[in-house]
Amino acid sequence: MQTPDTIQIPGLCGPLETIYLPVRGNAKGVAVINHPNPLQGGTNTNKVIQTAAKALNILGFHCYLPNLRGVGNSPGVHDYGRGETDDCTAVIDYACAQHPEAPKLVLAGFSFGGYVSLFAAAQRKPDMLLLIGPAVKMYTERAEPPLPDAASTLLIHGADDEVVPLKNALEWAAPLDLPTIVLPAASHFFHGKLIPLRDTVLRYAPLILDDDD
């Protein structure tokens, strides 16, 4: 795995501070991974999205972890998922343009980042949508959009999530017939469970992406 760099990606509010983790050798695609709620301290250095990025990098994806508007050195103000969706799609478009030889797109997000990723997925249709403890059924003023494709979605949730209750994920997934992977004894931030989280992504993501290796 390569050493990550910090780059600036053009966004509607200005340059988005983004961690970029390149692939050594042939890449399969790009992955954009969104951080949890910045009002609760979420940034692109969060351990959960860092864990997801390392797993996706091992699987052959150039990983981009933006600080969405108002976070870190990214300008703008928190917009409760609306403007952040524009930020996410800007990073997706930039990443895809940088790596035309690596056509697959993974869109991922943890907690609030999962909520943002749902809106971005409705616009950009990723080959895989990875949702980790997504903040579904939490924002009543703006409900989540329809899921583009349940078959290309990997949903992972902690059994003991104290921020986004597991029942939220199950109730949201039920009408979609979307299987949910539940990590036993895992809290919202997967304290002590980051290795099982990584291994879960490494185990199941290739099945969705139709990888043979």
Rank of each mutant, 00 (worst) to 15 (best):
L183G: 13
D177G: 14
P15C: 03
N26Y: 09
G14K: 01
K47F: 12
P36T: 08
Y64H: 07
G81I: 05
I156G: 11
A135N: 13
Y64R: 04
F189I: 13
A143F: 10
N168F: 04
Y64S: 10
I208W: 09
L194H: 13
V91N: 06
V77I: 08
T180G: 12
P4R: 02
Q2C: 13
I19L: 12
L170M: 14
R82V: 12
L194Q: 07
A185I: 10
T18H: 08
G192T: 05
P148A: 05
I9W: 08
E144N: 11
L147P: 02
A159S: 15
G72M: 03
N34F: 06
G158V: 11
Y204S: 09
P179D: 11
A102H: 05
I58L: 11
M128C: 08
K28Y: 09
L130E: 00
P175A: 11
P100H: 05
E84I: 02
A205G: 07
L194K: 07
A90C: 06
Y94G: 10
F112W: 09
D177S: 15
K104W: 00
K47R: 15
V32H: 01
L202Y: 09
P179V: 08
H191D: 15
A122F: 09
L56P: 01
P196I: 15
L12H: 14
I181R: 13
G133Y: 14
L65F: 05
R82M: 11
G76A: 02
S74M: 01
I156N: 13
Q40S: 09
Q123V: 08
T18F: 05
S117M: 04
F189D: 13
R69Y: 02
R82I: 09
V164Y: 10
M138T: 14
A135G: 07
A150H: 06
A31R: 00
L147S: 03
K28C: 07
G192K: 05
L118V: 13
S74W: 00
I156H: 14
C88L: 11
L197K: 07
Q8C: 06
L68A: 10
A120I: 05
V182Y: 12
P134Q: 07
P103L: 04
A52T: 12
A121K: 05
A108V: 06
F112G: 11
V23H: 04
I195L: 15
K125G: 06
T45V: 09
G133Q: 10
D213P: 03
T45I: 10
G113K: 08
K104I: 01
L68Q: 12
G25S: 00
E162L: 12
L147T: 02
V71Q: 00
D149M: 02
P22H: 04
T89M: 04
V163T: 14
V71S: 00
N168M: 05
A159N: 15
D5Q: 13
P134S: 03
G114R: 03
A143Y: 11
A90I: 06
R142W: 06
A151S: 12
D212I: 07
L68K: 06
D213Q: 11
P146Q: 13
N73C: 07
P4D: 00
H78S: 06
